[in-house]
Structures are given as structure tokens and as C-alpha cells.
Amino acid sequence: MQISFDLIIASLIDGLLLGFVYGIAAMGLTLIWGVMNVINLAHGPIIALGMFSLYFIFDLFGLNPYVALLLVAILGLLLGVLIYFVAVHRVIDAPHLSTLLATFSINMIIIGLGTAAFSASPRNVDFSLGSLSLGPVTLLGTRLVAAVLAVAVTGGLYLFLYRTRPGRYIRAVANNRDAAELMGVPSAQILALSFGLGTMLAAIAGGLIATFFPFTILAGGVYELKSFVIGVLGGLGNPVGALLGGLILGMLEGIIPAFMPTTWVPVLEFLLFVLILLVRPQGLFGARK
């Protein structure tokens, strides 16, 4: 088989750009894990809600999708705080199974209501920024902007975590909740905020993905699974690791199809996932403890 070098470069870059968005989604998952040791099984549906929110704001109010994204982010934050107080707070100190099932019940509720409200037919955000050609490589405008935004969001998150008081509180709670509480950190509010930030990131990722692909309420599931893989790749609880992990996964998805059928991609992804859990559970870049 003749493999075209240009084709590989093109799909590599394509995957890389997509990887930035994967990274944002995974960052949401990994932030919640890092702060409160909860695996958010409602992650996928929240990504899907991000897609739908962007779609409706764009479609009904005719707002520019990137302005709409700001609203999507705020909605995502509020939703997360709500979910935390309704479903997670009461079981935050219970065994793992409780938080897994509590967040899964939110998953069922969102999917159930979403299917009833939005039906199962795919939607599409009809928006384009044209494309940019660099030699053999053609870059879609929406992907480029999404990648830039992903970097901006990561930077913003870091500024927030390291430069603001609530951010420092979050890191303190992540480090040692009991000690933080003793020093007067209002842990319930901080946990709720952290959960909200996690879902905000998921919603942003969903909004960005909606500018690339058609979607249904079930579309988030795939990105939830990818977020698990990326989160483990980058080290659960490590936001920058998540972004790097996203890039790695994006590139793998770009390269692998050049060598074998696309359908083998998930096999390799999940094998890699399990392998890393076994040999380097702290992730490729080492988790912050």
C-alpha cells in the first residue's frame, strides 16, 4: 500500500486540532476527579447539552456561535453547581459506588429528558469559517478557532486556579480537604464550584464540537469515553496533562487510519487506556499529589 506523506500530515494536523477540544472535555472530567475523587458519569450528556445549548442559541437568536459559547459556559457552570448540590454532596464521603451511581442517575435523567425533548434525529450547527490552505494541508476555520479557544480556556483555568482566591481554595481542597476545612475554606461551596468548572469545560467542549459535527443527545457518550482515556493518559487530576493527553489521542486518531482500518482505532485506544492504568496509573506526565 502506498501511503501518501501529504495525506498523513493532513490527517495528523486534523487530529491534532480535534485533540485540543478532546483535551478540554477531558480537563473537565479530570478536574472533578482531582478535586473530589469523583468519576462524573454524567460527563457525556453534559457535553451533549453543551452541543444543544449552542445549537439553540445560534439557531433561535442568531448569535455568533463563539458569543453563544460564552453563554453555554455559564449554563454549564450553573448546571454543575446544581448537580453537585442535588446529587453529589450527600454522598461525597460515601464509597466510590455511590458517587458513580449518583452521577450515572444524572446521566439517565439528562438522556431521558433530552430524548423526549429533542428526539433522536441529528442536529447540525450550520456555520462555517471557510478554510485555510497551507501547501497540501487544508485547515477548517472552525477547527482552528476551536484549538485557539481551547488553549485560551486552559490558560484561563490556570490563571483562575493559581491567581484567584477561589482557585487557591480549590487547590487546597484538592490537596487535603480536612486540612482546608480546618483553615476555614468553605468546602461545600468550593466542591460545588469545582464540579461546576468541570461541567463548564464539558459544555464548552460540546459547544465547540457542535461546530464540527452533527449530533444527537447521545453524541456525548463517545467523548466521555475519550475523556476517560485522555484523563488516564495525562494523569487523573492533572489539567495540563489532560490537554497534552487530548493532543496525543487526537494525533493517534489522525495517524492510525493511515496504517489500518479506522475501526481499529478504538481497539488501540482502549488497550492503551487499560495498559496505562496498569503500568502508570499516575499518567504519562505524573499526577500532582
Binding site: 451511581l101 442517575s105 438522556i111 431521558g112
Partner: peptide, 9 residues
């Protein structure tokens, strides 16, 4: 599905 989710919760 949503009703089942509420019950599970």
C-alpha cells in the same frame, strides 16, 4: 429513562 434515573438517585 429519566424517571428511572430519579429513582436511582
Amino acid at each position: 429513562l429519566a424517571v428511572a434515573g430519579v429513582l436511582l438517585l
